[in-house]
C-alpha cells in the first residue's frame, strides 16, 4: 500500500515495529515504532511517558515526510 501511495507522488512515513520488513516491502520512509501490537506507544509505561513516546514517534514521522531522500531510509 505504501508503494502505491508513493507511486502517486504522496510521501508516506510508515510507522513499523519491523523496519527491515517495511524496507523489504518497498517502503521508502520508515519510522521505527515500538512493538507490532502497539507501534505508537508503550502500554506498560505510565500514561504520561506513553504519550511522550507517541508524540516523539509522530514528530519523527512528520520530519520524515519533510525530508528529501534518494534511497529508502529509517527514521
Amino acid at each position: 500500500m505504501t508503494v502505491e501511495l508513493e507511486r502517486c507522488g504522496l510521501p508516506v512515513a510508515m510507522i513499523s515495529a519491523l523496519p527491515p520488513v517495511a524496507l523489504e516491502l518497498g517502503a521508502n520512509r520508515v519510522v521505527r515504532g515500538v512493538k507490532i501490537p502497539h507501534p505508537c506507544g508503550e502500554p506498560t509505561a505510565d500514561a504520561e511517558h506513553d504519550r511522550a513516546i507517541r508524540r516523539e514517534i509522530v514528530e519523527r514521522a512528520l520530519a520524515a515526510l519533510a525530508t528529501p531522500i534518494s534511497v529508502p531510509t529509517i527514521f
Binding site: 500500500m1 505504501t2 508503494v3 502505491e4 501511495l5 507511486r7 502517486c8 507522488g9 504522496l10 510521501p11 508516506v12 512515513a13 510508515m14 510507522i15 513499523s16 515495529a17 517495511a22 515504532g33 507490532i36 501490537p37 507501534p39 505508537c40 509522530v58 514521522a61 512528520l62 515526510l65 519533510a66
Partner: peptide
Amino acid sequence: AAQRMGAEIAAELVAADIGGVILTAT
C-alpha cells in the same frame, strides 16, 4: 489486493489535496 487498495486510497488522497501520509503498520 494490497496494491489495488493502495492505489484506490491514493486516488482519494490525491483528490483531497493531501500533502503527506502517515501509515501505521501492525
